[in-house]
């Protein structure tokens, strides 16, 4: 049997413990711990459905080993907001019709958060480049671009980083 190790993952501000072998990806570990909001689309880093923020940077959790994420700050889409207090991005995506089947959306909203963190006033090119690692098959991206721009506007109007 491969070596397993108990690690502590800091997920959406809470510490969670799990015992995983060395080859277990962060995607598998997060879903094992019940974070079903992190979606599996390809397990090869092609589609971005499993993206999470790792110390503020958007990464494909399928290409990150669980052990390597220990001690780092992990944020999933559910860590950004919830039904009662959605993040401006979540609100803009829902109200703007940017989510269709929605399977890619947890990863896309995470990528969008990284875009806005880096470019509070993102250009269309900033948005497109920032989403280039995320595939969506339903929307043609147009409403996703619009939702990210709208959310960035809202966040600047509210005058602070969320």
């Amino acid at each position: 049997m491969p070596e397993t190790r108990t690690i502590t993952l800091r997920i959406n501000g809470r510490e969670e413990e799990g015992r995983f072998p060395a080859h277990r990806t962060l995607l598998e570990a997060l879903r094992h711990l019940g974070h079903m909001e992190v979606k599996c689309g390809c397990e090869k880093g092609d589609c971005g459905a499993c993206a999470v923020l790792l110390d503020g940077m958007a990464v494909d959790s399928c290409l990150t080993l669980a052990w390597m994420a220990a001690g780092k700050e992990i944020t999933t889409v559910s860590g950004l907001g919830d039904l009662d207090a959605p993040h401006p991005l979540q609100k803009a995506f829902a109200d703007g019709g940017a989510a269709q089947c929605g399977y890619c959306i947890p990863g896309i909203i995470i990528a969008a958060k990284a875009i806005i963190d880096e470019h509070p006033e993102p250009s269309e090119d900033d948005i497109r480049l920032g989403l280039s690692g995320n595939l969506c098959r339903c929307t043609g991206y147009t409403k996703i671009f619009e939702a990210i721009a709208d959310a960035a506007d809202d966040m600047r109007a509210e005058g602070g980083a969320p």
Partner: peptide
């Protein structure tokens, strides 16, 4: 009317369970 779809809030917050969840 361009109303927010009934399924949208759950999808954007990661609350919607898909068959694989």
């Amino acid at each position: 009317k361009p109303l927010t779809r009934t399924d949208a809030p759950g999808k954007v917050t990661g609350r919607t369970p898909y068959a694989g969840d």
